[in-house]
């Protein structure tokens, strides 16, 4: 087990280095001098310009800059933005909000999607199955901003159940509406995947055997059908969690959630290369770790692929 995790982490290393290098190269390939942009209409003196360039290592060749930057990252320092803020601090402030939003969205998706999918799978071809398929199709074909604005207008403004935008400190209650929107985006996948998985499991010999040995259907459905069907579903949801955790930029923007996605969007608009690179670097690390988690989760869910002792 430990050896497996170690091997996976070693495999993640080239992914990490390669992706950061690409991001670094691309961000600095954007035309325009970032230092000059900091001054807007004013023109800095040559001395100031040189000092600032030295501070951000912009006077060095590209490869040296990259290596200096990576050295800082490995020491745990993600650098400072052009506006002088510490990127570490920005992430400490925004990441917890994104994490809470992601957890909420995934929880809603899991409960609603799996329940609906289970019932649809057990009643394949009946009315419930067809109606939920239709709802799923509508949700899946709607662009996220349409869904977000409609939800905001209807639940936030017309009905007034939720606040239309997230207030200061992003309390849990304010996060429910954006979480529902995010969950709705994935609902169709979860629901259809659960349904397909339930139908497949239901046709397995061991389900027939479970009935054959005298079990009641109240036991067969959760213990033998649902439990086995959840293997692909859980990994799908976990993968979605990985996507949400690195920031749902559009949804966070619409609901004004002070999260990572929102912050990244602003940084890109400001051409704040150090911030963009640092945030994306952290997100790559998180994404790699989440995917490792998914692979380990497989082993927990399915004993056949448990990474056995020996």
């Amino acid at each position: 087990m430990t050896a497996y995790i170690l091997r996976r982490l070693l495999q993640a290393l080239p992914v990490f280095i390669g992706s950061t290098f690409l991001i670094y190269a691309m961000v600095f390939a954007i035309p325009g001098d970032p230092i000059l942009r900091m001054f807007g209409d004013r023109t800095p003196t040559d001395a100031t310009l040189a000092a600032l360039q030295a501070k951000y290592h912009l006077d060095q060749p590209f490869l040296v800059r990259y290596l200096l930057y990576m050295g800082d990252v490995f020491r745990g320092d993600l650098g400072t933005t052009f506006q002088g803020q510490s990127v570490n601090e920005i992430l400490m402030r925004t990441f917890p909000n994104t994490l809470r939003l992601a957890i909420l969205a995934v929880a809603i998706d899991l409960v609603v999607g799996v329940t609906v999918g289970l019932v649809a799978g057990l009643r394949k071809g009946k009315i419930f199955d067809n109606v939920t398929l239709l709802i799923g199709l509508v949700l899946i074909s709607m662009p996220v901003f349409v869904l977000a604005f409609v939800a905001q207008w209807f639940f936030g403004i017309q009905l007034g159940i939720f606040r239309a935008t997230v207030g200061p400190g992003a309390p849990w209650g304010d996060l429910i509406l954006p979480a529902i929107v995010l969950a709705a985006l994935n609902f169709a996948f979860t629901m259809r995947l659960t349904r397909a998985s339930v139908i497949e499991t239901n046709a397995q010999d061991f389900v027939r055997m479970a009935y054959g040995k005298g079990l009641r259907s109240e036991r067969v459905v959760p213990v033998h059908i649902l439990r086995n069907s959840l293997i692909p579903v859980t990994t799908n949801i976990a993968a979605n969690f990985g996507i949400l955790i690195v920031g749902a930029t559009v949804t966070e923007g619409i609901f004004n959630v002070p999260g990572v996605g929102n912050e990244l969007f602003k940084a890109i608009n400001r051409h704040d290369s150090p911030e963009v690179v640092s945030i994306v670097t952290v997100l790559v690390i998180i994404y790699v770790l989440v995917n490792l988690g998914i692979d380990l989760l497989y082993g927990v869910l399915d004993p056949r692929i448990r990474y056995v002792k020996k």
Binding site: Q204, D205, F206, R208, M209, A210, Y211, G212, K213, G214, L215, H224, R227, N228, I231, L301, D302, P303, R304
Partner: peptide
């Protein structure tokens, strides 16, 4: 089922729940 009539299935490889 189980109490009065028992079932021995065709394919033992598929008839036990793997999890």
């Amino acid at each position: 089922r189980g109490r009065l009539i028992g079932l021995v299935p065709q394919d033992p490889m598929q008839s036990l729940n793997p999890v």
